[in-house]
Computed example of a mutant assay.
Amino acid sequence: MTLAERIQQHWRTPTAVSLALTPFSLVYGLVTKIRKAAYISGVLKTHRFDIPVVVVGNLTVGGTGKTPFVITLAERLKIRGWRPGIVSRGYRGKVTEAEIVPADGDPHHFGDEPVLVARKTGLPVAVARRRAQSVEKLLNESVDIVISDDGLQHYAMARSAEIVMVDGIEGLGNGFLLPAGPLREPPARLASADIRVRRGGEASEGEYSVTAALGSARNLVSGEEASLDEFRDVPLAALAGIHRPERFFDLLRQHGLTITAHPFPDHHQFCADDIPAETTVLMTEKDAVKCGRFASDRCWSVSQVTEIPEELIDKLESVIHQTGQVNLSA
């Protein structure tokens, strides 16, 4: 276990270790305040655009289901007549200048999540180290709205609306800033978000609740689709290189499946040796984009279905129509 992993074990509730790290959190908090003030005052440049930019982010380190939410949000906006494009940092990818992600793109180059989004939506997806460059790239793709997968703290990119996601189980952890806790910004930052979303658990007042469930399975070689019910009473291996992989395993068990769990770190770069031999293997869609080149016909990806209430889409369109750009000083 790495030092970072040991520290993260103390992020759920205040402990002696997290309290000992609070002086470093105070320094981190001061730096983030100065940085944000520099954007508000114009010392650092904020790039503005002629089309709406919607940021889907979170206050905590780690996954809160942003990417599945972004996929569903983009699909729903398309149904309502919008022409969405998506931007991403391309975590652990190799892209520097802005590039459009093809549906068959290499996840090692573009990052696993942008490739997944491109494949699932069929919409333009742009990746760059600087998100503002990605937005500029999408302007050449005839989009009329941009969704940023993460980037809440990327104040160089102006936004028309902010959607902040909170994990229904972990919440905001112990409430401390990095490194004593999981927070990138103070809890009070939630108040300035246009839309607050709770993924799982019970939504608080002013929040929208979204749920995540497993869909069908798809064979990585043949493309055949099958219901998860067809895998009951069959010994299975399940692998997941995501934040909190046990959630994927729990959902499979709730479907009545008998699995042997194989957890990996988030964004793990899979190789053929990671795939369990001589058994049927179920994996997340995010992991499947990295396993396709060496997968056998024993490998299946399991889709995740995110349900977004219509009221949330209505609220988002209202914010877009009423405001130009979010006031960073709010």
Rank of each mutant, 00 (worst) to 15 (best):
S329M: 10
D233Y: 09
D144C: 04
K137F: 03
M1P: 11
S148M: 13
V305M: 12
N140G: 09
P186E: 08
A217Y: 02
G171Q: 10
L228F: 06
V115Y: 04
N219P: 06
A193M: 06
R119I: 00
R293T: 14
I147Q: 04
I34T: 11
L59H: 05
T323Q: 14
L59W: 03
R130V: 13
G206K: 10
G65T: 12
E136A: 15
A118G: 10
G62I: 11
D106L: 04
W300H: 00
T306Q: 11
R131I: 07
P235W: 00
L214I: 02
A16Q: 12
V164T: 14
S204G: 14
A132P: 09
L236V: 01
F264S: 07
K137S: 12
G65H: 12
A74M: 08
I169C: 05
I34P: 01
E141G: 09
D274R: 02
P179I: 02
M283Q: 05
I79E: 15
E317R: 13
K120G: 01
K66L: 04
R130H: 15
E162L: 05
G90H: 11
H268A: 02
A238K: 08
G241S: 10
S142D: 15
L252N: 01
P276I: 02
V125E: 05
T64C: 12
R6S: 13
L177P: 06
G223P: 08
L123T: 09
K290H: 09
D106P: 05
S222P: 08
R232H: 00
D229Q: 14
T60V: 15
S25W: 03
G168M: 05
I40W: 06
C299K: 02
G173V: 09
M157H: 05
L116M: 15
I169N: 13
L19T: 11
T13S: 13
T72Y: 02
R247Q: 13
R12T: 13
F264T: 07
R184T: 03
L316W: 11
S303I: 01
S216G: 10
L251A: 15
H262F: 13
P52A: 08
H47W: 10
H243I: 02
A74V: 11
E185T: 01
G241T: 10
S329T: 03
T67F: 09
D266E: 08
N58C: 07
A237C: 04
R92L: 13
P102W: 09
A193L: 08
G62N: 11
D167V: 03
A98D: 12
P102R: 09
T121R: 09
S25V: 03
P186M: 03
A38W: 03
R253C: 06
A277Q: 15
E317S: 11
V43N: 10
I320P: 00
V55C: 09
V135K: 03
T284I: 08
F270K: 10
Y28K: 00
K33I: 07
E278C: 07
A132Y: 15
G65I: 12
R244I: 06
P102N: 10
D150R: 00
N327E: 14
R83G: 03
G90S: 11
T121Q: 09
V43S: 10
S296R: 12
R196K: 14
E5I: 05
Q8W: 05
E136H: 13
I195N: 08
Q304W: 03
M1N: 10
Y39M: 04
V221F: 00
G200C: 02
R198E: 02
P276L: 02
V54G: 06
